[in-house]
Each structure stands twice: as C-alpha cells, then as structure tokens.
Write a protein that binds this DNA or RNA. Structure first.
Lengths: 232, 232
DNA sequence: CGTGCGCTTGACTTTTTTCAATAAAGGTGG
DNA sequence: CCACCTTTATTGAAAAAAGTCAAGCGCACG
C-alpha cells in the first residue's frame, strides 16, 4: 500500500483533492515503532503532529511520584500532537506506543502552509479539535461529578453497542489492560478491581475470559452512571 | 464604539483584513444580558458561537442532583460555544452570565463561509481551540492526579504574578465567589473553606478583605501543587 | 430591621487510597 | 512444552481525603 493511500484513509484528510494528498505524501515521515516506545515527552518542542496508521498509542500525564493519568488512547486514523502545532508551544503530555505501531509525522510548517491553501483541511482539523474538546468536557465532568463506579459504568455504556436491544446480553472486549483502564478513569487498579467485583456481585456485569465483559443489566449501569443508584 | 471596532479588538479576529471584519459585523447579533442569565443550555443546537465583549460568562456542567462543575470562566475577548459549530453537534454544557454582559453571536453558516475565504481566520481559530485543549489537559491532570490542596495551590500560583520576586508578599483578588472557586476546583465550598483555613494556619496565605488573598509562601504553595508537601 | 446568601465550622459517613500479601496470567528461554 | 520470572490482577485491613448534614455567623440588600 502506498503512502498516498494511507493518507487518503485518514478521516482528517477526507475530501482533499488528490494534489494536496500528494503534497502531504511528500512531507510525511513514516516510522514504525515497537511496543512501549516513547514518541514524544511532555515539554518537547512540537515541530509537527502525528497520525496513527496501525497499532495503538497512549497520551498520558505523569505525576511526580510516577502515577500516570491516561488522557487518550488513539486508534488507527487518529491524529495526535496537533495542539502543539497550532498553539505554537510544547507538547503538554507524553506519547507512547501500546503495541507495535506505524506512525506518520507531518512537519509543522509544511502543514500550516497546506492549510492556508486548503480551507477544507482547516475545517476538518477544526472538527477534529472540537470533537476532542467535547470528549475532554465529558472527561472533566466525569472526574469531578461522578465517583468511580459511575465512571466505570459510563465507560462500559460508551463502548457497548447502544444499538443492541435493551434486554440483550452484550459482550465487550476491553482493548486495554485493567491498569490502563484504571488510569483512564482517574483511579488506581485496586479500586477498579473492587468495584468490578461489586458490579459482578450485583449482577450488572460478568467477566468472561481474559478481557471480556458481559453487560447483563444495561439499565442498572445507566443508573450508576447517573448517580441514581449506588453499589453496596 | 462601533461594532467593527469591538470585533477588531477580539484576539480571535486579529490579522483579518478590514473587509472580512466588516463581513463579520454584518452577521453578528449583539445582545446585552443581565447578571445570571442563561445563554444556552446543554443539548441546545449549536447554530453559532459567541464572544464575550464585556462582563463575564461561566460554562458549566450540572449533575442530576444539581451540583455544578464550572469548566471555564470567560472574560472579554474570549469566544465560547465554537465546539458545537465545528463538530456540528449540540452544546456540551451550559452557559450563563456571571454579571451584566455584552455578548456577540455569530451564526454558524455565515461564519464557516468566512473561514473558507480566509485561512488566517481558520488558523486563529485552530490556535484558540488548541489552547483550550491544553487548558483542559491541565484540568484533567489536576483533577485526577492532585488532591484539593494541590489544586488550590496551583490556582493561586496561576493567578499570582510570577514576575513578582520569590520573596515578595503578593496580594491577589479572587474575581469569583468561593462557591464558584470550589466548583472550578472540582470540590465543594466546605472542603475549600477547610483547606483555606489550613493554608492560613500554616502561614502559606492570608485572607485579606472580602476576596483578597495574600501569598506569603510561594515556595510552599509550589510544593503543595507538586504533591511534595502536605497539609496537617 | 429582618431575610437571605455566602461562608465557616463541627461531627459523622462514605469513598478512595495506601500498604502488604498473594494469586493468576503471560512471555521467554531452555 | 514446561519451568521460571515478570507483570498484572485481586483481596484485606487501616488510614486519609473528601463529602454530607446541620448549625451558626456576618454582611448586603431590599
């Protein structure tokens, strides 16, 4: 598969004329990283931004005593590190691969040039940032308004298929370790483990296999997420 | 003062040619609201975005039992509600004036049109969103990695003048009520009150007048914000 | 001059974290 | 394929942090 084709498949670049996609292909830096490799660190100068082509990447903050808070987990097609490009500052967090991953890097200046030439690219980028902002809004809300069981319930509901009939038992596969999930929810593995045990005891969910979770009582989870119900 | 002049003074619109600023003046809706008036509610359709011209506006989330988490407090010159414009969705939070305020509203379609014509406007907007994202990053970090004393210390340090010599006693005026500050820090007034009392007892700060705070020990606050020190 | 709101304080409860020990799972090299 | 070792997950008991409930103060504003 050629560079241009990969670029074409990135949502951020949807609707760009061929010519501009080829421009992008000219400036891109293609790199493949093993599992758990750092991509950049908080405070590094942001001379460009990245797009995940394959694999997975986590963006996270580190506290002084080494506790980490995961801000995002990025899947193929998603860009990261753009904030530094437009705010003209340094990266506000760390980035690291979760598994072997292929990453495209786009240098700042060349990219800004391209934006000037192509308003659609600008609008796409604005949409990406807006959606991310929206996700953060929800995250801040969760962190400060809900306790951990509510956040976990919200997480399950978010990843579960909302299509599936209310009643159906539904299975979902966590694509991250429980440690990472804890960090994503702003808590620690022990707390997560306890709460998951409680949810199981109350028949809301059922762990299956190594990373599987069956959602047994969607309505119950919704009550938890909204703070109506509480765990015993 | 004419509309165009107000528009010119908004950082988001810096560097726009006169012609485009006049276009903006053509589409703007100018409104003045009393204190504590709602501007929009979570879930409303986002048919445009706003800029604060004078006064102050808070953006906040509400939990079911009425507890509020303030996401931002916006001062004159700052835009809000843009996320809905570009993500093409509904407003993710509530907006309300904190005091009598003058607000400009820019309708979505006309604005998007203008962006297409003017890459600088797009880049400005990208910078605004990026900075906001960065602020949220810090907020999420604070909420999940620091306990309340750390967040409060960080707040004081942020608003205090970093120029002022390390040693100098420095006074700062809170421009929001303590209730609101609590909400901004993701906690409740009682907790804030207790922590402020502890900080005072330990000689880190000293309350003066109704909303004044003297910073007595900047280094001490920094240790708190970084989680090195703790309150007794 | 009273009512109400913002703020503070105390006693108590709940939630979460910490520390420590153990169990289970996963990957690696023999 | 198995033994071994590291990482990941679970559980208990105790401590700490934050939240709830309730009472009371003081100041602003009608």
């Amino acid at each position: 598969m050629k560079l241009v084709e990969h670029i074409t498949s990135v949502p951020l670049f949807q609707g760009l004329p061929r010519e501009h996609r080829e421009d992008l292909a000219m400036i891109v830096v293609d790199q493949t990283l093993k599992k758990a490799q750092p991509i950049f660190s908080e405070g590094d100068e942001g001379n460009g931004f990245y797009v995940v082509i394959s694999g997975r990447v986590k963006i996270f903050k580190l506290s002084l005593d080494g506790k980490e808070q995961i801000l995002h987990i990025l899947n193929p097609g998603e860009p990261f590190g753009e904030v530094a490009v437009f705010a003209g500052e340094r990266f506000p967090a760390h980035a690291e691969t979760l598994e072997e991953s292929r990453i495209f890097f786009f240098p700042r200046l060349a990219f800004i040039d391209l934006i000037r030439k192509n308003p659609n690219l600008a609008l796409n980028m604005l949409a990406v940032l807006s959606r991310r902002l929206r996700k953060f809004t929800a995250m801040v809300e969760d962190l400060s308004l809900k306790e951990v069981p509510g956040r976990l319930a919200a997480y399950f509901l978010y990843w579960g298929d909302p299509q599936k009939g209310k009643k159906e038992v539904q299975e979902l596969k966590l694509d991250i370790s429980k440690n990472q999930l804890a960090s994503l929810l702003g808590t620690i593995p022990e707390t997560l483990s306890r709460i998951l045990a409680k949810m199981t005891k109350e028949g809301l969910v059922k762990p299956t296999g190594s990373r599987g979770i069956q959602i047994l009582d969607r309505a119950g989870l919704e009550e938890l997420a909204e703070g109506i119900r509480r765990l015993n």
